[in-house]
């Protein structure tokens, strides 16, 4: 179930648009903010709040890659950009270093649910490549040492 706070936020989001369906994307974002992913229940609740079919919510959840539908992610979601600019400047080494440091493969979550590692396509930070995003925050001009420090700082 969504919290009252999220439901209130969904009501606010609805006001931005002439129809409720348009609020679907941001409503689902609000739902995801609660725990980092969305469940079947959340999607049903969003559908109910917007008076649309649950499958319409899942369509949105499944198309846009930042929604974590029914996939609980770790507390920290580390996404390393692997597109051309970052790759030219060594994104692969960064990914490898993180995999080694955490003992997991890309796409996996550490056993203590602390960190999930994924790759991402260009995040719009190419001038400061290589880069990664942890939850909402960008970390740029990465080096293997710098990454190691950042990871250590994640609780």
């Amino acid at each position: 179930m969504l919290t009252d706070k999220t439901l209130e936020e969904i009501e606010r989001i609805k006001k931005k648009y002439p129809n409720t369906k348009s609020a679907c994307m941001e409503a689902l974002q609000a739902a995801q903010r609660e725990k980092g992913h969305v469940t079947e229940c959340d999607m049903r609740a969003v559908a109910e709040a917007l008076d649309i079919e649950p499958v319409e919510v899942q369509e949105v959840g499944g198309f846009y890659t930042m929604y974590n539908v029914e996939k609980p992610k770790g507390r920290h979601h580390v996404q390393v950009c692997r597109n051309l600019s970052c790759s030219l400047l060594g994104a692969e080494h960064i990914i490898l270093a993180i995999e080694q440091e955490l003992g997991i493969k890309t796409g996996e979550t550490t056993e203590d649910d602390r960190i999930t590692l994924s790759t991402a396509e260009c995040l719009g930070s190419c001038g400061t490549a290589p880069m990664m995003q942890i939850n909402d925050e960008f970390h740029e001009d990465l080096t293997v040492d710098k990454v190691s420090d950042i990871l250590k700082g994640l609780k």
């Binding site: 999607m43 079919e53 499958v55 899942q58 369509e59 499944g62 198309f63 890659t65």
Partner: peptide
């Protein structure tokens, strides 16, 4: 007039199906 089918996913992985 039901709209209970949707397209889940994107690109080569998309699938037309019901909610979950």
């Amino acid at each position: 007039g039901r709209g209970v089918l949707g397209t889940i996913g994107r690109g080569a992985h998309q699938e037309e199906t019901s909610f979950l």
